[in-house]
Design a protein around this nucleic acid. Structure first.
Length: 569
RNA sequence: UGACCCAUGGUGUAAUGGUAACACUACUGAUUUUGGUUCAGUCAUUUAAGGUUCGAAUCCUUAUGGGUCAACCA
């Protein structure tokens, strides 16, 4: 109820206003949107924005969204991408009403072209690509027609039929709309409608050797599907004039195009072309490398659909260029993970602690876990129903090296000679002795524990400021972890001087081959999210094998102490 | 030296001629068996100049800045 109220109160963006107006004055009873990817690459965060927008709008106002593959260029497209796109949309949590392909409409599109020819609004041009470009003029100079534009309707009809029949080679002829070679809008200067490509199409096979251009496929497909609001990005603004012209001349259902600014994220790039380069040049592990802003990359990294959707909701949409701080995305991911992640203890960089006054039951090498004291810890303090797990304790533990300092600064709340800390869900310990090797490196701590300080039964009356995570040496299991940082060193790699790849952050992946984890992680599952206490959120990577567990760091925890240290430097 | 689109805190978005706000970030403090979470608070905003109006972030004009357009790509 309160949730609904909040949504109603939320201000509308410009698209919602348009839809509300259209609905209010009866232009439409319900709306139809579509998500129209070209199957020539993997989906990224920008697509996620579009998906959330299109599906979100039809859900909010009653209606539906189609998935339509914009497959008019068989040379660059492949079914591999069709499959990954479907999977990504489903994973994000959306369901399309109908699944279509622009290629479903090739027959209809051909008929539309014939209609234009019959109206004297399209002609077959024999010019080369170079000539057409030259005749087109420039943004500041008008273009001019050539002799082919005067062909009769009958001749155009016949030539177009011959194009379809395969009589001509690639590039030999094109079909163009006859509009206005002097238009200030370059797209209106007799745009190409069809080109010849003797290429195998992943959906239609070898049926066609002529393929419609984007402008003669997209709007018409929208119209055929009765799409009411066709939402695309800003670079298509100049196409709108042509979009409307074709629909008007064809006298078909008047779908309308609306444009919004594509979403850019700081410290990454967001174009298929650039992402492809990163993959091809092996700067990343593939399209689903956890550092990539692709949906598959974010999924592998451990981002959740809920977090991504929340991010899209929060940033909203508008018509101005933007670079959104990835920090906001990370905030949304943390916010969700904090609610669902299981807490576990993992030591990344171990320092051995011997509890001198603790009598470990299992002193033998062959001792079983059950012989030792089992402590209980909550799986998630944010979730009442999260339950608990048992953690074995013993007289030999690992703590994090960085959690001990021999000469600590004033605000250091962790372990130091003579100081006490709480071991999470266990006891308070006091550091009695520091043991060093020949080089003066601290290699072991001798501590004593306070038996009355056990978590949940603490009668010691001692208050300590710091709480550390730990694992029992002999019970610990090992794993590999991969720590990710931003892929680029600068906020906007594309706007920097030179090639964007010069700004790649060479430290974006740090692998720690052996970390020590509490034994319950042995049963870690792929769809489960974990918070390694005080370290960050992690999830199992697909590189995990029976002999080696691999965890990806999804995102760090907010680290107030790191900030404090930075400040004092 | 054309046409079109855009301009609100550091970032992203609201305010639809009537008190410039929300979130993130940053900073204070409280709570905390995660230096996490949670809670309370602080800093910070209309590109500029004219005009219309009782009143302009909003409407008009001009300037400035940014973006897009000359693929048989989408």
């Amino acid at each position: 109820m309160a949730e609904e109220l909040k949504k109603d109160e939320k201000s509308s963006n410009f698209l919602e206003e348009i839809i509300e107006t259209d609905l209010a004055n009866g232009k439409y009873k319900s709306i139809v949107t579509r998500f129209p990817p070209e199957p020539n690459g993997y989906l990224h965060m920008g697509h996620a924005t579009s998906i959330c927008l299109n599906f979100g709008l039809s859900k909010k106002y009653g209606g539906y969204t189609n998935l339509r593959f914009d497959d008019t260029n068989p040379v660059t497209e492949d079914v591999e991408y069709v499959d990954s796109i479907r999977e990504d949309i489903k994973w994000l949590g959306f369901e399309w009403k109908n699944e279509h392909y622009a290629s479903d409409y090739f027959d209809q599109l051909y008929e539309y072209a014939v209609v234009l020819i019959n109206k004297g609004l399209a002609y077959v041009d024999d010019s080369t690509a170079e000539d057409i470009a030259e005749q087109k003029g420039t943004p500041t100079q008008p273009g001019r027609r050539n002799k082919y534009s005067d062909r009769s309707i009958e001749e155009n009809l016949q030539l177009f039929a011959e194009m379809k029949a395969g009589k001509y080679k690639d590039g030999e002829k094109t079909l163009r709309a006859r509009i206005d070679m002097e238009s200030p809008n370059m797209l209106m200067r007799d745009p190409l409608l069809y080109r010849i490509k003797h290429a195998h199409h992943h959906q239609t096979g070898d049926k066609w050797c002529i393929y419609p251009m984007y402008d003669f496929a997209h709007g018409q497909s929208d119209s055929i599907e009765k799409v009411t609001h066709s939402i695309c990005t800003l670079e298509f603004v100049p196409h709108r004039e042509l979009y409307d012209w074709l629909i008007e001349k064809l006298e078909i259902f008047p779908s309308k195009q609306y444009e919004f600014a594509r979403r850019n994220l700081s410290y990454t790039v967001m174009s298929k072309r650039k992402l492809l380069q990163l993959v091809n040049d092996k700067h990343v592990d593939g399209w689903d490398d956890p550092r990539m802003p692709t949906i598959s990359g974010m999924r592998r990294r451990g981002y959740t659909p809920e977090g991504i959707r929340e991010f899209c909701d929060r940033v909203g949409i508008a018509k101005r260029e933007n670079i959104t701080d990835v920090g906001l995305l990370e905030f949304c991911i943390r916010e969700h993970l904090n609610k669902v992640a299981l807490r576990r203890m993992v030591v990344f960089d171990p320092l051995k602690v011997v509890i001198t006054n603790y009598k470990s039951v299992a002193a033998d090498a062959d001792a079983t876990i059950s012989a030792d004291e089992m402590l209980v810890s909550e799986n998630n303090p944010e979730d009442d129903k999260g339950g608990t797990r048992d953690i074995p304790f013993s007289n030999e533990l690992y703590i994090e090296k960085e959690d001990f300092m021999e000469n600590p600064p004033k605000k250091f709340f962790r372990l130091a000679p003579g100081k006490m800390v709480r071991l999470k869900s266990a006891y308070i310990i006091k550091c009695d002795e520091v043991i060093k090797d020949d080089k003066g490196e601290v290699v072991e701590l001798r501590c004593s524990y306070i038996p009355e300080s056990q978590s949940g039964n603490d009668t010691s009356g001692i208050n300590v400021k710091g709480t550390l995570h730990w694992v029992s040496v002999k019970h610990a299991i090992t794993a590999e972890i991969r720590l990710y940082d931003r892929l680029f060193k600068v906020e906007d790699p594309s706007s920097e001087e030179g090639d964007f790849k010069e700004y790649i952050n060479s430290d974006s992946l740090q692998t720690v081959t052996t970390v020590y984890a509490e034994p319950s992680l042995k049963s870690a599952k792929f769809d489960e999210r974990y918070q390694f206490l005080r370290k960050g959120y992690f999830t199992l990577d697909k590189d995990t094998s029976p002999s080696r567990m691999v965890f990806n760091r999804t995102v760090t925890l907010k680290d107030g102490w790191a900030k404090e240290q930075l400040r004092s430097q």
